[in-house]
Simulated assay, not measured.
Amino acid sequence: MSVEVSRQIFLFRSLIENRRFDDGTLRVLECILASNGAKSLIGIVSALNDFMRRESLSVLREISSLRSVDDKLLIVEFHVRVFALIGDVESCLALRYEALLMREQKANSDQTLRVSCIEWLTFAQHSFQNGFYSIARKACEKALLCFDMKSNIIDTQTGDLFNNVQLIEKIEELKYYAAITASSQSVQAQAAQYLKKKAVDHSSDHPFPVIKDNDSGSAKFRKGIKRRHLRQLHHARSRLPSSACPSEMC
């Protein structure tokens, strides 16, 4: 590792420890990752990732006392960007989930913070694509609540009634595949089946836009990941009944 890279890593760590969550800190990280002197880049990224995971947990505890939801969201968004640069998909999704839950909890008093069904669906799609099927199913359930007529919550972003019906069908479909994939022995096969179908439908369908209790959202997310790993360890013992997958959808 070059002296310059070592200096930049020290600077980045100092900025994080001093809670400088801004674009300047992100630029330092970008310089580290792009540096020609970073010969052991894999080791550097791993060390930075471990450091950021520890710091992000401390930060989440610290910001719980902040009164401003906007400030909380800005800090969480900063950490999402950091983990995206490092390539830690798990932490990136966990913090995105944390941010969505923060907004949902405050939406009753501030409608500008309301999470739309499109945002929940986008998050569900990303979770599914990265193998977090239980979390994808929960996000689909959140998306469907946006159409709960009894609570007068209708997502105006989706347009007219016809478009809403189509969107509900898409959410229900993803929820179905996420549920059977999470409980299925053939996890990879089910996921591949769904993604293949989406690729076929893509030519005639518009993609969705990507819009950048006591347990925290990230804690729930990681519990879901642990359950997923446990299912995979015991997958040889489980069998998906043929009746659980209707012929018209398989």
Rank of each mutant, 00 (worst) to 15 (best):
M1K: 04
E4H: 08
V5W: 00
S6H: 13
Q8S: 06
L11Y: 02
L11K: 07
F12P: 02
R13I: 08
L15A: 09
L15H: 13
L26T: 04
G37R: 01
A38V: 04
A38Y: 00
S40F: 12
L41D: 00
G43V: 05
L48T: 03
R54D: 15
V59D: 05
L60P: 00
E62M: 09
E62H: 05
I63W: 03
R67V: 09
D71F: 09
L73Y: 08
L74G: 08
I75Q: 07
V76S: 02
F78S: 05
F78G: 03
H79S: 10
V82T: 04
V82S: 03
V82E: 04
F83G: 04
L85S: 13
G87E: 14
S91Y: 09
S91E: 15
C92M: 15
A94V: 05
L100V: 09
R103P: 02
A107P: 01
D110Q: 05
T112A: 03
T112F: 01
S116F: 03
C117K: 04
T122N: 15
F123T: 01
Q125R: 15
Q125W: 06
S127A: 14
N130I: 01
Y133I: 04
S134L: 10
S134Y: 00
A139T: 03
E141H: 09
E141I: 06
A143Q: 06
L144D: 03
D148W: 07
K150L: 00
S151R: 13
T158E: 00
G159P: 00
L161N: 08
L167D: 00
I171Y: 02
I171L: 05
E172A: 15
E172V: 15
E172P: 02
L174R: 09
L174D: 04
L174T: 04
T181P: 01
S184K: 01
S186L: 04
Y194L: 06
A199N: 03
A199D: 06
V200E: 09
H202V: 08
S203P: 09
P207D: 11
P209A: 07
V210M: 06
D215Q: 13
G217H: 00
K220C: 12
I225D: 03
Q232N: 07
H234F: 15
H234T: 14
H234I: 07
H235L: 03
H235Q: 15
H235M: 06
A236V: 08
L240A: 05
S242I: 11
S243M: 12
P246N: 05
S247I: 11
